[in-house]
């Protein structure tokens, strides 16, 4: 990284403020569309942090995969399931939030303690900086070749799985008579598999 350390510090403070505020907004905002857009902001600031950590390739991958694919997918899901529904109040919600907040605070304190008491072997070796992309390529085609190929198989499996799960079984023509089917009728006739008053 060639920029001065004070600039890096300022960038780090700004990016981490965006990150923390965005993450709190994702979790706490009542409107889920705002949450989804804030999630995009969180992903972008994480990509900025990667740039500060001399990882330009992973920062580009973060922008492409998270902001470009995952966030857009989440927005599509919100559009597809966007129905105003009044959530039924459940008893003890405040207590549950308080308890889970205490558990998360305890986890946070534990993580902070580990981070600040462990004697990290600093300073480590000199970072490779701009050669990081070359090193990643060498890793992916030598000692991490098997996980790399497995990742491709995993992506294929998840693609097929997502298509199978999300597909709507609609035939364009009647199987017996061969006539075109009224699509609106099929849409209306779909019955929920699990009825609301089914035995629990």
């Amino acid at each position: 990284m060639t920029i001065s350390s004070i600039t890096q510090l300022i960038c780090f403070v700004a990016l981490s403020a965006t990150l923390v505020l965005g993450a709190l907004g994702v979790v706490l905002l009542p409107n889920i569309v705002y949450s989804a857009f804030l999630l995009g902001g969180v992903f972008l600031s994480v990509a900025g942090l990667y740039l500060l950590l001399n990882a330009s390739f992973v920062a580009a991958a973060q922008v492409l995969v998270y902001v470009g694919a995952v966030n857009v997918l989440i927005l599509f899901a919100i559009m597809l399931v966007n129905k105003k529904e009044n959530l039924a109040a459940i008893p003890g919600l405040g207590l549950r939030r308080l308890l889970s907040g205490a558990v998360c605070g305890g986890l946070f304190l534990l993580l902070i303690r580990v981070a600040f008491t462990t004697p990290w072997p600093l300073p480590g070796p000199e970072p490779v900086g701009e050669e990081a992309t070359i090193r990643i390529g060498e890793h992916l085609f030598s000692d991490y070749l098997l996980p790399f190929e497995l990742a491709s198989v995993l992506l294929l499996m998840s693609m097929i799985g997502a298509i199978v799960l999300a597909r709507r079984d609609v035939l364009s023509s009647d199987v017996i008579t061969g006539e075109a089917v009224d699509q609106g009728l099929i849409e209306k006739e779909r019955t929920p598999l699990l009825l609301e008053n089914s035995p629990r």
Partner: peptide, 26 residues
């Protein structure tokens, strides 16, 4: 800093996260 194995791991985590998001939303 020399063998940037953490970055390779981060790439695999990003791959798995993308697959997880697709299947989860489906």
């Amino acid at each position: 800093g020399q063998l940037i194995r953490g970055q390779v791991f981060a790439i695999f985590v990003i791959t798995v996260a993308a697959a997880e998001a697709a299947v989860g939303l489906a």
